[in-house]
Design a protein around this nucleic acid. Structure first.
Lengths: 146, 146
DNA sequence: ATAACTGCAAACGTTTTGCCAGCAT
DNA sequence: ATGCTGGCAAAACGTTTGCAGTTAT
């Protein structure tokens, strides 16, 4: 008997995605928007077309669509806040396998704030960069994952 | 009569910060750590020195210390996930006043992943950048804030 | 036929809050 | 004396999950 580790959320199907009305409307409405809505904002919008849809369905579909790269999830899934004794500007890298978070010892890119100011109309105060990747430890354990 | 808008969390004092044992220990332990603990991880650590401290106190102090720039909060306070119909790499800017989130129409900095790889030992897959600043609308309303 | 999917409601884990006593200034 | 702060417990919040019935393929 072989034990298989299922990667990803419990609600993401192993087989074929289906094209339900709910999923279609969620995608359509999200595509229409310039903004980056939260799940419940999108729920309110979608509800105008599908009054009986549930918030759970919206969450489930956003998760699935994100896994299949149809949409993008901005503030990376369910992570707790983390705190850092350093207050100087520095960057972080997160391991997608184990969630480990490390500092990245690079000098801050101090020119990019000005670039952002020029194209956004914002007064830019600072920025943060989070790299995502696979840490050394997880890379050496790669045989565990299919 | 003048209406004053209180900025920031309900638990952040308007007056002078005090130097309590709990606050000191939280700061000390956080400073010792190379890692970026969550509130409850830090709670467990601090509890070894102050067994009667509560998790609420840890949260309150982290919030206050963060406001006063004594520490840094990594995954910026309580924001919900946001979803984006675009799946290509692009950056975002958040207004610290109103929470508004916009796209930043800059070309992706494709060289920085390699720089990060060189200094971290991670296999770097991607990165995200979030600028923080004040949006045009909020800048024109600045008279409302002290 | 079958596996994906939905709505609903309950459960979950994290964070915030109200209360009141206690302590730093 | 003032008002910031702590502990505690309850509430709030965003998100996930179990269930039982439904739907797309």
């Amino acid at each position: 008997m072989k034990i298989v580790t299922i990667i990803g959320s419990h609600n993401v199907p192993l087989g074929q995605l289906r094209n339900t009305k709910q999923r279609k409307v969620i995608l359509e409405e999200l595509a229409k928007l310039e903004s980056h809505p939260t799940a419940s904002e999108l729920y309110e919008i979608v509800r105008k077309r599908l009054p009986r849809i549930s918030l759970g369905t919206v969450y489930r579909n956003l998760e699935i669509l994100s896994q299949f790269r149809k949409i993008n999830t901005l503030h990376p899934a369910g992570f707790e806040k983390r705190f850092d004794g350093r207050t100087d500007l520095h960057y972080h890298v997160r391991c997608v396998r184990c969630g480990r978070l490390d500092d990245v010892p690079l000098e801050p890119f101090d020119t990019i704030d000005e670039a952002a100011r020029n194209v956004t109309g914002y007064e830019i105060l600072s920025h943060s960069i989070e790299f995502v990747g696979v840490c050394a430890r997880c890379r050496s354990h790669k045989e565990k994952e299919p």
